[in-house]
Design a binder for these strands. Structure first.
Length: 498
RNA sequence: GCCGCUGUAGCUCAGUUGGUUAGAGCGCUUGAUUGUGGAUCAAGAGGUCCCUCGUUCGAAUCGAGGCAGCGGUACCA
């Protein structure tokens, strides 16, 4: 048991919930962002960028204190001891921007924005602490036509990304209808002493999709025990109160119109509830007139979304196809986007109400889903052409070959390592190079270069048994005169382009 | 936060009732092949057995506490 004499090494590790993103994902993601941007632009939204962090109070976050440091957001203090936080979404920064530039902006103000957001929460499968969102918002429009437009926008964006109609659905509900139902069972949605109960109820309803009616019933009543044995306290409602809520959450019918009818029956003349129903009815009219049927946008009373933030219609985009993970188990992706009307957010700064509605696409999660669906093609199927270095003294000649390829718009690079030929081929292989260019003294003398097609060669390797044969045959390799280099490489590229 | 499971090589894992120098496969490096990726063969590098304390003649193995990862659940304005 001798002492370890080596100094302890620094452990290379990524902070939890964060990840590095490789070349193929970046390319695929860029393509996604382009597709979404084209849709948002076509709707007339204008781009905006805001910084990664803001003053903590502008995000509407309580200052981190001893009791609850960094709840939900990553925060730090600047040299003046002012609290700053990384943005956790793109909506709060928008509200700040609009309030700060209110007079100069056109109203309604329509902007789109994409970027990373950070959440100081426990990461889970498919959930990270840094992820990309792509938002579109309309600020200063109180008409539900703006809300209807958000739903169409979301549907169009998903289709532009290759999600087929029927493989997704935008589910819509209205917070006013929910409030109406709460009133009908004797819970005042705006009474302070019942805020806690209201939250618990709404959260329970929100889980209908995942837990089913039995689970929701438990959460509305005494509570529910999960698979790990952990117990979640319920809302403590009587079965008298639970019944109408269960009826409501299951009120979805075939088609927006029937769903509205069945929801309306449960609101029963409650003023707020009726107002919510009327809003949904207006949205339905706008959607239908635009040819957006219920296979794309549906009404669903179990949609709740985050809380106290939304004031009217709420939306959620969901993928409906089933996907298996690497172990063959079915995975549910759940929501890949969401949004709604938040009439109160800008008012925090302005003192006057400024109506607003928006939709946010979770790009990172959508990427995972689309990859699983096999929907994303690799935008760049091969690596660069590698020009090998046979003789270090002739490196200038090799660089000239590289330049000629680049001038012909072919991705190419000179091998910059120290390896011998074998290692250079291995490198080219690892890079996914379609071919390697070789020029030894013999070729130089004849004014030729060798072009070796690595993809063809890999196929040929399967039928070659002995190493001698492998080496002497030089599969898929041919000589061309030096001035035909570009044509020869192009031919190899074309051979494997699809 | 709460509940459960798991920590041994870069990765996936084995490791007997507690016993001497902790193993395998894959990967990596080098060579067989001084002008060629693959296959084959050979050699090599690579370990704080998560950490600390305890029990013991002796701990990767047993006990306690911690830490980390994974999963579930909650929270997510």
């Amino acid at each position: 048991m001798g002492k370890n004499k080596k100094p302890p090494r620094l452990k290379a590790r990524l902070p939890k919930g964060l990840r590095d993103i490789d070349a193929s994902e970046i390319r695929a993601r860029d393509a996604m962002l382009r597709a979404i941007r084209d849709v948002y632009e076509s709707y007339g939204f204008e781009p905006l960028d805001t910084p990664a962090f803001e003053y903590t109070d502008a995000l509407g976050k309580f200052l981190p204190d001893q009791d609850r440091p960094n709840e939900g957001v990553f925060s730090f203090q600047d040299e003046d001891e002012q609290w700053l936080s990384l943005r956790y979404d793109l909506t709060a920064p928008l509200a700040r921007h609009v309030a700060e530039n209110y007079e100069a902006l056109p109203k309604p103000f329509r902007r789109y924005q994409t970027g990373s957001v950070w959440r100081n929460e426990k990461p889970g499968p498919g959930r990270f602490r840094e992820f990309i969102q792509f938002d579109a918002d309309t600020v200063g429009a109180s008409s539900v036509a703006a809300d209807a437009e958000m739903c169409m926008l979301a549907a169009d964006a998903l289709e532009a990304l290759g999600v087929k109609r029927g493989d997704y659905v935008i589910r819509v509900n209205n917070r006013k209808v929910l409030d109406g139902v709460l009133s009908s069972i004797g819970i005042d949605p705006h009474a302070d002493e019942q805020l806690g109960t209201r939250l618990t109820i709404l959260r329970a309803l929100d889980k209908y999709e995942r837990l089913g009616s039995d689970g929701v019933k438990l959460l509305l009543g005494d509570g529910r025990k999960d698979e790990s044995g952990d117990f979640t306290k319920g809302a403590g409602l009587t079965s008298h109160q639970t019944e109408p809520l269960m009826k409501f959450v299951m009120a979805q019918e075939q088609g927006r119109d029937s769903t509205l009818g069945s929801m309306e029956g449960l609101v029963q003349g409650n003023e707020i509830g009726q107002q919510g129903i009327d809003e949904l009815r207006s949205m339905d009219a706008v959607l239908t007139a635009s040819g957006c049927e219920d296979d794309r946008v549906a009404f669903d009373p179990s949609i709740v979304r985050g809380l106290d933030y939304y004031t009217g219609p709420v939306f959620e985009a969901e993928l409906t196809f089933e996907v298996k993970d690497e172990k063959g188990r079915p995975v549910r992706f759940g929501s890949v986007g969401g949004g709604g009307r938040y009439d109160g957010l800008v008012a925090r700064f302005k003192g006057q109400p400024v109506p607003a509605t928006g939709f946010s696409i979770g790009v990172s999660r959508l990427y995972t889903a689309l990859t699983a669906l096999g929907q994303l093609k690799d935008a760049e199927p091969f690596g660069p052409v590698v020009v090998s270095v046979f003789d270090k003294a002739a490196i200038a000649d090799y660089q000239a070959l590289v330049t000629r390829l680049r001038d012909a718009d072919i991705r190419a690079e000179l091998y910059l390592g120290n390896g011998k030929m074998g290692q250079q081929f291995k490198y080219a292989d690892q890079r996914g190079a379609p071919c390697v260019v070789i020029q030894g003294p013999d070729e130089k003398e004849r004014g030729e270069v060798q072009v070796k097609d690595l993809i063809e060669g890999a196929k040929a390797a399967q039928s070659v048994a002995s190493n001698e044969e492998w080496r002497s045959e030089r599969p898929a390799q041919f000589a061309v005169s030096e001035d035909k280099l570009v044509e020869a490489v192009r031919e190899v590229l074309a051979r494997h382009r699809d």
